[in-house]
């Protein structure tokens, strides 16, 4: 089966600093790729390149068979949830759904369905900048799913939000994946890797792939090593 996303030799720089150093990878249909890395390693940069928000220095990115530098048609089959709040702050919650649905050319009936699935009835008339983080994230995901996309790009999907919102978002993510959707989910907390089928570990501009278990084990080893070093240091200081 042809990969849904194909990245070849992708390079991105900010000034002289290399953020992404010749990344090459593929994502297949139905996969949920967790993009893991500590803060500031370039997860958002990579996700924004895939979403067509940012340009890149060199390389080639193909999504749904389209070269994203030449053709933006793939965006019709994509949904984006950003790390920073990016809904239209001058609009109310329902107006955001309605506006984004119109721009995506999505069916108006999808709005009612998503409002129900994401439990948004009570906040539809609220301005989005007044919403709690969890509700905001539910609304963001509902907006991203309006066009029933094949690919969902999510940056920090459930970080630091209330458990109710987390459970709804996880449920809807599972339902999206079961129905054949593909997701790339960026996060900086290792425990979320359990929700993914594969983890891409981004560090120093390069990307290494692991199973969720391997990623967790790598993280644990690293922590263990750091803890040992700290204990040793404490011992030396005490002596």
């Amino acid at each position: 089966m042809a990969p849904l996303i194909k990245v070849e030799d992708l390079k991105q720089t900010v000034g002289k600093q290399i953020i992404l150093n010749s990344l090459s990878f593929q994502i297949s249909s139905g996969e949920c790729l967790g993009l893991f890395g500590t803060r500031g390693v370039g997860k958002t940069t990579l996700l924004h390149i895939l979403a067509g928000v940012n340009r890149f220095k060199s390389g080639r990115v193909e999504i749904l068979g389209y070269d994203i530098e030449k053709n933006g048609a793939y965006k019709k089959q994509m949904g984006l949830i950003t790390q920073k709040p990016s809904l239209f702050k001058d609009l109310q919650a329902y107006e955001n759904l309605d506006f984004i649905a119109a721009l995506k050319g999505a069916d108006q009936h999808n709005i009612a369905d998503l409002v129900q699935r994401f439990v948004l009835h009570d906040i539809l008339r609220e301005p989005v900048n007044k919403l709690d983080a969890g509700v905001y994230q539910r609304l963001s995901m509902a907006c991203a799913l309006l066009n029933e996309p094949q690919i969902l790009i999510a940056d920090d999907l459930i970080n630091d939000i209330d458990p109710f919102s987390q459970s709804i978002i996880r449920r809807e993510l599972n339902s999206f994946l079961i129905s054949g959707g593909t997701c790339i989910w960026g996060f900086s907390r290792i425990e979320f890797c359990r929700c993914t089928s594969r983890v891409g570990w981004l560090e120093k501009g390069t990307l290494a792939f692991y199973t969720p278990q391997e990623a967790q084990a790598k993280w644990d080893r690293r922590w263990h090593h750091i803890a040992q070093q700290n204990e040793q240091q404490d011992g030396e200081d005490y002596a």
């Binding site: 067509g52 048609a73 984006l80 709040p85 990016s86």
Partner: peptide, 13 residues
């Protein structure tokens, strides 16, 4: 300059 520019770009409009 608004954060929602991300949305507009990703929508492909």
């Amino acid at each position: 300059c608004a954060a929602s520019w991300c949305q507009l770009k990703s929508l492909g409009i």
